[in-house]
Each structure stands twice: as C-alpha cells, then as structure tokens.
C-alpha cells in the first residue's frame, strides 16, 4: 500500500488549527462618528463584536459600512470613536487581519510571496512551510510560483484569504470579500472562509443578505442618514448555513424589504 501523501492529509503540520492557541478577544466600539463637511454619515454609533463570533454588517451603498470597518481596522483617517477597545482591555492595533473587496495582491510578487507579505513587512523570516500548507488548504499549491495576473478572480480571492489567514490574528475584518466573483465561486469561498476562520472574531461587511445569513452569528442592518443600526438578527443554527435552506431565503427577502423601505 503506498504511503499516504502528506499533502492530502487533513491535519497539516505547521498550520495552527483554527481557534486553537489564539487568544479569543471581542471588540467594543462606542460613539463611532464620521462626517464629511455638513453631512454626518453616522454619529454616536455603537457596535459589539462578540469574541469568536461572526458579526455581519449589511446596508445600502454609501451608508458607511466600510468606513465603520476601517475605523476598527485603524485605517480610517476621517472616522473617530470615543471608545474602541478589545475585551481583554488591550489595544486592537496589531491584532487584526484585514481583507478587502479587491484582492490587493501585489502584481510583482508570486502567490507564495504575496501571502507571506506580512512577515516581510515586519522584517520577520517568512514561514514558507506554513505558507505552502495554507496554499494547500485553499487549493492554490499548484500556482504558488505564479504571478497574480495568471490567476482567475476566484483564485485571486482565495490567495487573499490565504494571506489573511497567514496573519493568524484573533480578529478578522472583511470588507465585501466575495462580492467581485461569480455566484458559484462566492458560495464556495464562503464555505472555505467559514471553515478556515472558525473560532475567530469576525466582522463581515457585505451587501448580500444571503451571505450574511449564511455566515453570521449576528447580523446588523445599517441604514438612514445619519446611519443607525437596528437590533441584531440572530438566525438559528450554526454557520455556515446551507445556501439552499428556504428559511434563509425567506429571511433574506425580509432583509431586502427592510433595506428598500
């Protein structure tokens, strides 16, 4: 009997099992505000990201969803918060991984070098063993040495997901991460992300109610000007919920009506 190919085994050495050995922290935001001139996008906005849970943020374009996420990520020069704290009392900076709608892969680096970018930026030695294992997990091991231009949109977004996971942070902030790929690829990416990110504290900004209902432990809808959030919607069952569940579609239709109204 041939030896088992270690590349296809389930447990891959060098990849931390999701949720293990990571300090699980929640995030508390109080008094978030953003305005451009006289126009207040949101004022005095509160948001809690419970530890180890996925929080989804829905809302129409321009309502300030992305700005809220960028405020927590510490990359919004305009938005401000009265309080922005981790549940263990520490700072948030340095403990988040950020994933954008665009893959943000650097076109001059191959896939492997792209997903180890964080280590290179911090002046650390890149863990190539772990990076290769991660590429196996997202199904990109064959194209590790390819430039991003040679990849399809779905593959590029998987590479971005691998880069996010390589950061191995307790908090993951995702800004419409799967909105630029086709519907089928999106469902697969959602399953993959849910599997790989389980146990982390996640904020997922999306414009797709079904995506929020599949992946979120709690879902907020942001709307109005200045924007307000209603109470959290907490669908039954554990994410990832099946995409063909009729109950989800009923809920999604309700959210869409809510967004339109």
């Amino acid at each position: 009997m041939p030896a088992e190919n270690p590349e296809h085994s389930v447990a891959i050495p060098g990849v931390a099992l999701p949720g293990v050995a990571l300090p699980v922290i929640g995030i508390t935001l109080r008094g978030g505000a953003l305005s451009f001139g006289d126009r207040a996008v949101f004022t005095n906005l509160d948001l809690d990201l419970p530890a180890g849970r996925t929080t989804c943020l829905l809302g129409p374009s321009g309502v300030g969803k992305s700005s809220l996420l960028r405020l927590i990520a510490g990359i919004s020069p305009e938005a401000t918060a009265q309080t922005l704290l981790a549940s263990d009392g520490g700072v948030i900076a340095g403990r988040i991984a950020y994933m954008d709608q665009r893959d943000l892969l650097l076109p001059w680096l191959n896939v492997l070098d792209n997903i180890t970018l964080g280590a290179r930026l911090r002046g650390e030695a890149a863990d190539h063993h772990r990076a290769m294992a991660m590429l196996h997990r997202v199904g990109l091991a064959d194209v590790a040495t390819a430039l991003p231009a040679a990849l399809s949109g779905g593959m590029r977004q998987r590479a971005a997901l691998a880069r996010t996971l390589m950061e191995d942070q307790p908090v993951v902030l995702m800004d419409e991460p799967f909105s630029s790929v086709d519907a089928l690829t999106r469902l697969r990416l959602q399953d993959l992300a849910a599997e790989l990110l389980v146990g982390r504290t996640i904020l997922l900004v999306t414009h797709d109610p079904l995506e929020a209902l599949r992946l979120g432990h709690q879902i907020y809808v942001l709307r109005g000007e200045p924007a307000c959030m209603g109470p959290a919607l907490k669908p039954d069952g554990q994410p990832p919920r099946p995409a063909d569940d009729p109950a989800l579609h009923t809920l999604a239709a309700g959210i869409l009506r809510d967004l339109a109204g």
Partner: peptide, 13 residues
C-alpha cells in the same frame, strides 16, 4: 488599498 493592508500588518505598536 495596498498601503492600508500594509498598515494593518505592521500596526503592532
């Protein structure tokens, strides 16, 4: 976007 990404990656302190 690249610079934002870099900032989140190097923002430890």
């Amino acid at each position: 976007g690249w610079l934002d990404l870099a900032q989140t990656m190097t923002a430890a302190n």
